[in-house]
């Protein structure tokens, strides 16, 4: 993708008087890191960047607590907008949040970028350890060209791309004001690993998840990096009643992950960020994709495709399956 086009578009957007600021990505402070940034003036636009290293969803910043654009002054904020860069998954997240009434589309100016998938930071940092200087990465013909200190390295995309992105169905933003670059076709979803786990006896499934969840330190990075986890006063913060106790043990960790997965059922848009930020490598997307698969099979529903469609669990159909009901 042409960065210059992105910067030009950003400049145009910031030239509009209703736009307060733009949320984008800039180079991070070291190595492969990318940092979210908030750009208010045209002069700052040149720090904008976009590469396969841009992993975090910027949609988070629209709903995060203390967000600058709160409708505190209804009249004033109504006229104001935030410009935002979105990839395919982010645009689904936006649709879903709009459908849920979490944000008003009138407050957004969305610039879409067809995304070729992001690099899993854990993989690339394991491959090129000790890289303190900022790095450039571009994707060309199925390879990542990684430039570290003027030295180029060519690595096949498959070796570094995040697992979720390999099966991304909607790489092109679905709803946006401007699209930068050419549309990309998606891949069919793959649920083979889910089916293998589904076929195991209950004890083995429990054992599998126990091994995974026993590592959890409950830092809640998965929750906070999730664009759809935007509840004001998360259930995990409630003390009366305390649904999930703060003790870190198997029982509570299971409860936490059940809660998290269930609250994302029919809402997860498969960006995979929860799994990528997990410091102890819990395969959270297995849970999310299981929910995604079931919801698709049972109700023919996919999250975030259309901001007009009501959320799955707020609706019902007379003919919903009920073969398990006595």
């Amino acid at each position: 993708m042409d960065i210059q086009k992105l910067r030009d578009e950003a400049k145009r957007a910031l030239g509009r008087k209703e736009i307060e600021y733009l949320i984008g990505y800039k180079k991070g402070s070291y190595g492969f890191r990318i940092s979210p940034c908030f750009i208010e003036t045209k002069e700052e636009v040149d720090q904008l960047t976009f590469s396969p290293l841009c992993s975090l969803s910027l949609v988070n910043y629209l709903t995060i607590e203390g967000k600058p654009l709160l409708p505190a002054d209804e009249k004033k904020s109504k006229a104001k907008k935030v410009a935002l860069l979105v990839r395919g998954c982010d645009s689904r997240a936006l649709n879903q949040i709009i459908a849920e009434g979490g944000i008003s589309p009138d407050q957004l100016y969305v610039i879409g970028i067809p995304c070729s998938g992001v690099i899993d930071l854990k993989k690339i940092e394991a491959r090129f350890p000790h890289t303190p200087d900022p790095v450039d990465v571009v994707e060309e013909n199925g390879n990542y060209i990684i430039t570290i200190n003027d030295q180029s390295h060519t690595v096949p995309v498959d070796e570094l791309k995040a697992e979720t992105c390999k099966t991304c169905q909607y790489p092109t933003p679905l709803t946006c004001k401007k699209l930068i670059g050419d549309k990309r076709a998606g891949n069919p979803p793959q649920y083979e690993d889910i089916q293998i786990l589904e076929a195991q006896p209950p004890e083995e499934k429990w054992q599998f998840w126990q091994n995974q969840f026993s590592r959890c330190i409950r830092c809640y990075a998965c929750r906070n990096s999730c664009p759809l986890c935007y509840c004001d006063g998360c259930i995990l913060e409630k003390l009366k009643p305390q649904w999930v106790k703060r003790s870190v043990d198997t029982n509570e960790n299971f409860m936490f992950h059940i809660t998290r997965a269930f609250h994302l059922a029919g809402r997860c848009i498969s960006c995979g960020e929860c799994e990528r930020v997990c410091p102890v490598d819990i395969p959270l997307m297995k849970l999310n994709r299981k929910m995604e698969k079931d919801v698709k099979e049972l109700f023919d529903f996919e999250a975030g495709l259309d901001p007009e469609v009501k959320p799955l669990l707020n609706t019902f159909a007379i003919e919903d399956p009920e073969d398990f009901i006595l």
């Binding site: 054992q207 998840w209 799955l312 019902f316 009901i325 006595l326």
Partner: peptide, 27 residues
């Protein structure tokens, strides 16, 4: 109707995590 949808999903989730779905019943 709303409950029906929720419990299908919850039941499937718990089954996936290793709790026999026979333990979660609806009638």
């Amino acid at each position: 109707f709303l409950a029906r949808r929720r419990f299908i999903i919850m039941r499937n989730l718990l089954e996936f995590i290793g709790i026999d779905p026979q333990r979660i019943r609806m009638s």
